[in-house]
């Protein structure tokens, strides 16, 4: 048995709420919402409200799918800065074979969702690096590989070196080492995968 109360929304839509009737007082939160619209109102309403709801619903449904697919096929930008770039390349060589984790370097920032900053960033290059970062489509992540990218490394005091690339844009994972071994790089990428799962489901 249900009791029906009707209320009018500001947009003019009628929302019918079903409330439980029992011994206990009625719950504050409506348990079920039904959107009731007449046929002639359907098209303008669909444009105003339903699209948003549908989009939201689709997002909730598909976001885990996209996250699952995205985190298992991170495409880093093919960008070699300094010493760590050689270990980065070795990580894609025969012995470590990073591609078995779905990590494939791409040469265009438009195709990438991961920026691995593998080396020293100078002030002269910082503008270009920010441009590269902004050219990458969302969702995107950044890994600071090695001590130079993390905090300037041995060149911290130099006049031309950015003391830590997080002065330029946010970093998700820092990898220590000068340079880190390829295993450490792979570990950093796997940690980023875990982080995406924890953060976005």
């Amino acid at each position: 048995m249900t009791d029906t109360t009707a209320s009018t929304h500001s947009a003019g839509t009628t929302v019918v709420t079903h409330l439980h009737k029992g011994d206990s007082p009625a719950p504050e939160v409506p348990t079920e919402q039904i959107l009731a619209v007449s046929a002639k109102e359907f098209i303008p309403l669909w444009k105003e409200n339903l699209q948003g709801l549908v989009n939201k619903g689709m997002d909730t449904l598909t976001q885990p799918l996209f996250n699952w697919a995205g985190r298992n096929s991170l495409f880093p930008l093919h960008l070699g800065l300094a010493c760590c770039a050689i270990e980065f390349a070795a990580g894609f060589g025969a012995r470590w074979d990073a591609e078995r984790f779905g990590v494939v370097p791409r040469s265009s920032p438009r195709q990438c969702d991961l920026l691995i900053i593998n080396g020293t960033v100078t002030w002269k290059f910082s503008h270009k690096l920010i441009t590269l970062w902004e050219q990458m489509p969302e969702p995107k992540w950044a890994i600071a590989m090695g001590n130079c990218a993390t905090g300037g490394g041995p060149f911290r005091t130099a006049y031309s070196v950015v003391p830590g690339v997080d002065k330029l844009f946010p970093i998700d994972v820092y990898i220590a080492g000068c340079p880190p071994r390829p295993e450490a790089m792979l570990d950093g990428i796997l940690r980023l995968e875990r982080l995406i799962r924890e953060r976005h489901g």
Binding site: W123, K124, G152, R156, T157, A158, Y159, S160, P163, K167
Partner: peptide, 29 residues
């Protein structure tokens, strides 16, 4: 090596290296 418009000649002895905390990031741009 340094970008056009940089005001200093860094290998001169009058140009001293400092810890990055002492520098304003803006002035290095």
């Amino acid at each position: 090596l340094m970008p056009e418009g940089y005001k200093f000649h860094p290998l001169r002895k009058s140009f001293e290296l400092r810890e990055p905390e002492e520098l304003e990031v803006k002035s290095r741009h």
